[in-house]
Amino acid sequence: MTPGTIDLAGVSTAYEGSDLPVIRGISFSVAAGEFVVVGGPNGAGKTTLLETINGMLPITHGRATVCGLDVAASGTGVRTKVGYVIQNFAFDPLAPFTVGNVVIMGRYGILGYGRQPGEEDHRMAEEAMRLLGIEDLADRSIGKLSGGQQQKVLIAHNLAKKPEILLLDEPFSNLDLFTRSFVCDILTGIADAGCTVVMVSHAFDALPDREVRILAMKDGMLSLDARCRGDEVEEKIRNLSGSVHA
């Protein structure tokens, strides 16, 4: 086992019926505790890359190893070690789920069938809510929260399982500028503590004040793999021909 590492060797992922694989022959390695920003134009394959890393999409070529596990063979095992904050979500305002319910659900995969959450699980869920500053929302219905609050709940849901790797798909899309900075500080903190952070983002105004790694994608392939400070990411991405972002 190699906690927090990602190794992709010539990985391609294709959907049925598509002319070309969505990501094609991608190879890179990420060490534990790295803070990776994945950029690129719409349709470049960024979300597909995240879902390939956590084993939610079939790998048609190549080999992916995450936390020392072969993703193709042990998808569920990988997902118990990897957090994934999805991009598109919409919750019914009348849905019978409180914030507390949703955050503790982050622990269910680790527990496995038949085991109920114990004191330790509830403690970790509370800790994650405190970290995101949403502990006062614990009894509120998730469907009645704002998009930004729901985004924080989903981040807390993933942090509750103490992931070795945290994948985030556009985590800032629902957040105001102040909250972006607040969430970025949390992500920087967990990366400093050894959790690998891989974040797809078009918002470069709240990246950490530390060295980050940029993986830029275009047409399903890597077009840039570089390291720079957080405040230099936007310039680096803009300098790539044909991939200007809002």
Partner: peptide
């Protein structure tokens, strides 16, 4: 709650 989020959480 959400099938995709459940799967991403490591639930079979």
């Amino acid at each position: 709650f959400n099938r995709k989020i459940a799967e991403a959480a490591g639930i079979r």
